[in-house]
């Protein structure tokens, strides 16, 4: 019946007059349903997003009433030709790779270990792996300023209790390890998300597949490799895409961990969002903030597209 209906009302743009009453009614309803959302997104997303591109080609401080002079790509050169920027790019790329693989793999392995074995009691273990997600990312990062504290912090206290009384890493104060400490918070928090999504996906796998594999004498590792992994492939793509996007913009980790001295010590935890935040809100450098915004946008879209393209290309054909 719907096939017939679509034949009777072909999709191309008919003029209002020749449109059937159903089509006309649908246009009207669409206008009513779309307008409020479109107006809101227009004001707070699309308008500023297009502004950012224009702004990045001008020299403007963000305060003066007029936009200043058109300077072409000079703003980009000024915004990128410095140490903080190269640090931010390096950290962002590394963080993207970590986000793509670390929380996802730990989450998948943990979910399989709990769901595909006779581990008991399952609810307790599920709770254990999900616990970090009770805190928001920002709150988790704020808490880790205490967990990482060199003297009373949990980690160094544990190290001390284990007998290593001389080892007292300055987790957040040492520029060589601060970025890894920050990524540690990210992994700690996001693994819980990956875990819970993979748990839901594994629970939906047809149990008879496992029984058949067992009859055939497959080992646990083979079951994981040939049943679990292929079955959660689509969910994995979804989770990895989210982790990639979050991993490229982990502001909620770096902001609580490193203020005062956002992005410090000495730019070692700098990421593009912290640079943009500083220039947009503290530094009154609107044009450079906009130029960095354009770069971040291209970076995120580029990397996510490449990732999704690779996933598409390596998809099993069935």
């Amino acid at each position: 019946m719907s096939a017939l209906a679509s034949k009777l009302h072909p999709r191309p743009l008919e003029s209002w007059r020749s449109a059937s009453s159903k089509t006309r009614e649908q246009w009207l309803l669409a206008a009513v349903l779309v307008a409020p959302a479109l107006i809101m997104m227009g004001i707070f997303v699309f308008y500023p997003a297009t502004q950012t591109i224009g702004l990045s080609f001008y020299k403007w401080d963000g305060i003066s009433p007029d936009m200043g002079d058109f300077v072409g790509f000079k703003t980009f050169t000024r915004a990128t030709d410095n140490y903080p920027f190269s640090q931010a790019i390096k950290n962002s790329l590394l963080w993207g790779v970590v986000g793509l693989f670390v929380p996802t793999i730990i989450g998948l392995v943990a979910a399989a270990l709990v769901e595909d074995t006779n581990l008991r009691p399952k609810p307790l273990f599920r709770f254990a792996f999900f616990v970090p997600y009770f805190f928001s990312m920002a709150v988790a990062a704020a808490l880790f300023t205490r967990v990482y504290d060199p003297s009373y912090g949990m980690i160094n206290q544990v190290i001390h209790a284990l007998g290593f009384t001389d080892v007292k890493p300055q987790w957040l104060g040492d520029g060589r390890i601060a970025i890894y400490a920050a990524m540690g918070v990210f992994v700690w928090h996001e693994t819980a998300f990956c875990y819970i999504v993979f748990t839901a996906a594994i629970q939906q796998i047809d149990r008879s597949l496992y029984d058949a594999a067992k009859v055939d004498g497959a080992s646990e590792v083979q079951v994981f490799r040939y049943i679990t992994i292929p079955s959660v492939r689509d969910v994995a793509t979804f989770v990895m895409t989210i982790m990639l996007i979050v991993g490229l913009t982990p502001f909620a980790v770096v902001f609580p961990l490193t203020t005062p001295g956002l992005g410090g010590p000495y730019y070692s935890t700098e990421i593009l969002p912290t640079l943009i935040f500083k220039k947009a809100r503290m530094g009154y450098n609107a044009s450079e903030a906009a130029a960095l915004g354009v770069i971040l946008l291209l970076l995120v879209i580029g990397i996510v597209s490449v990732f999704l393209w690779l996933r598409e290309r390596t998809a099993p054909k069935d």
């Binding site: 707070f44 950012t52 913009t249 935040f277 947009a280 809100r281 609107a286 906009a290 915004g293 946008l297």
Partner: peptide, 23 residues
Amino acid sequence: LLLLIMMAIVTPVFSYLEPLTRV
């Protein structure tokens, strides 16, 4: 419209933070 919505998903707020505060 669908394309615009998709584009909005991959556009981080940071990339238009300054113009947004101005709005």
